[in-house]
Design a protein around this nucleic acid. Structure first.
Lengths: 349, 349
DNA sequence: TTGTAGGCGTTATCAC
DNA sequence: GTGATAACGCCTACAA
């Protein structure tokens, strides 16, 4: 019909659609942004023309004119941990519903990388930012604040943090776990944990354990503390090392489920009975944890919920609301099969 | 110094930097895009001014003028499978090195969603696209081709596919697995697999198994074929169901490692000895597979490599090259502990 | 309800 | 080596 490609081989522009539909570019724009403001007949004509030539508003031009990019950024340590993958997946879905696309970047636990990533995203004009953890270089938050865009920190919820947070109190959570083991009667407890340097969440976890033990007059002996990359393999080698110390712990608290899975598998491979000979706890409740034999006692964190809440918070900010501070999520202790009372030799009466 | 914020509370623009450095905006632009074309002294002045006011080129404006968005899109089923998470992580890293940011979207195995996601990305001006699988609605590829942007299909490598692919031959891979079991002496083989509808990769896998069996005059009995969501739980319930059939298979081929892990754990929970009573194979070689007891026999796929190659291919296209078709990756059979010769009753002589 | 026209921030093409 | 200036594609007052 009234359809003419202007410069073939080149994506169509609004003017082309306007010409085809015999209207102005303003009307074309309105059809796509405020459809109710244009007469139905014309609207159809424009829509038809646009469809015929496969036109859709060009994001860069639109972003420039509108001064909105409809892009938000997510900055996470790595996708190789199902915890962060789940969070990102949920955020992506929540944003997609509102026509917002997600820019992703992984800083691999490297603080300089994180600063760099954030600045790159800022340059891309992200309208909001979600960042895992708050242990970042000051300039990271400074550059965000200089742009006056909303942001949220996930997985942390330190009381008194200056940032909007969606997460839980890591210290409290590990206090709970440690308390659980103490209540079962354990007194010699080992810890296998991720590197604490530059990771506020992990540092808080170790802190929580120490606090709980201290309340009973106990502590973590240096030889019972193993710090290293969160991997099943590190869990394995750590439990082996810890079991070779004296006194031998009756329980091991792991900084996350990957470590705990390793500890559990290795302990069993060594011929130990879990939990009789050794209690083991994890954190995160990853998919495999409930499947093992015995199933892992751990704390469940709803990562999809974290992603969703982070997205909702940012979305609200973008709508101009000033959402109230969010209460922390509370991870729940999942008592499964790897933690029980220690099998201590009967004490002389 | 000669530093003046023009309209405070508003991000600085190139003109502001230009004014502060007492040069033109053209020079400011050059400093950031062709530094070698500007005198060192002036360059420093501009850099200093930019730094002082925290300016960096605005992506939307730049994209418009340059006619390049420096954005590419990745379209995957879900991040909840570590296979895709790894691929995306590797792509993101490879692109980041070249100053390209990654737009992510998950279609959750829903073809309509995939079409929608791709079109949204196109509207965002992605310069290239990586898509998992080739079983998509025709309009998905049509809209990409209409834009004349490079794209690549990952995880598929069907001989004769019209698309550039980075992946492996799923049919061939499962032919290899099935052959392995046949060579061990299995004749009654069950299959637990993801939904084949709308998933070319899975359909090809089942095909490969059938072909290998057919070559020995065998087949997959209907009661031995279980098709459902890839989850550890579905693996568990399926192995239970298959073991209740007659004749009882001596081996089960699983469509991926999640299913196989479920099958293995459930078989053991039922008191079976693996592999003596039942051989089990997986596919993907996810992190947990080698850790189980016995460790899972599976095929290893280098997902990071897939992501990296996909990124390299697209990058090359963006440089104007016309890269040759890539040879398929070849997953390698990892013989671990879950596949062995069947423990058949001795046949009468 | 629709059209006109200016501007969004940067880059590229020219002159100088 | 540097500076005007015209795109780039779209949106939105404002005017009609």
């Amino acid at each position: 019909m009234s359809e003419r490609e202007p410069k073939p081989g080149r994506p169509p522009r609004a003017v082309d659609v306007a010409a085809a539909a015999e209207v102005s570019t303003a009307t074309v724009s309105r059809v796509f942004n405020n459809p109710e403001k244009v007469a139905p007949a014309i609207r159809e004509r424009v829509l038809a023309a646009a469809k015929a030539m496969g036109w859709m508003p060009h994001a860069a031009g639109s972003a420039l004119a509108r001064r909105r990019s409809s892009i938000v950024g997510a900055v996470i340590p790595t996708l190789d941990n199902e915890v962060f993958a789940a969070q990102v997946g949920a955020m992506q879905a929540a944003f997609a519903e509102r026509g917002i696309t997600l820019l992703l970047s992984c800083f691999n636990y490297n603080q300089d990388q994180a600063v760099h990533d954030v600045q790159a995203m800022l340059a891309r004009g992200v309208e909001a930012l979600a960042i895992v953890g708050e242990a970042h270089r000051p300039e990271l938050f400074a550059s965000i604040q200089a742009r006056h865009i909303p942001y949220v920190v996930t997985y942390s919820h330190r009381p008194g943090s200056p940032h909007a947070c969606v997460g839980f109190d890591n210290r409290q959570a590990f206090h709970t776990i440690a308390r659980h083991l103490l209540d079962l009667g354990h007194e010699t407890i080992g810890v296998i944990i991720q590197p604490t340097a530059g990771n506020d969440r992990v540092a808080a976890r170790l802190d929580g354990v120490r606090a709980a033990l201290a309340e009973r007059g106990l502590g973590v002996r240096p030889q019972h503390l193993r710090e290293g990359e969160w991997s099943i393999d590190f869990g394995r080698q750590s439990v082996r090392a810890i079991l070779a110390t004296d006194p031998v712990p009756t329980a091991v608290i792991c900084g996350n489920d990957y470590l705990a899975v390793g500890a559990l598998l290795e302990a069993r491979a060594m011929g130990l009975s879990v939990p009789r000979d050794l209690s083991i706890t994890g954190f995160d409740d990853i998919a495999i944890s409930r499947q093992l034999d015995p199933p892992l006692t751990t704390m469940h964190v709803d990562n999809h919920e974290i992603g969703r809440r982070a997205a909702d918070y940012l979305l609200a900010c973008l709508e101009g609301e000033r959402p109230a501070a969010m209460p922390p999520l509370v991870p729940t202790l999942i008592r499964r099969g790897t933690a029980a009372a220690p099998d201590l030799p009967a004490r002389p009466a």
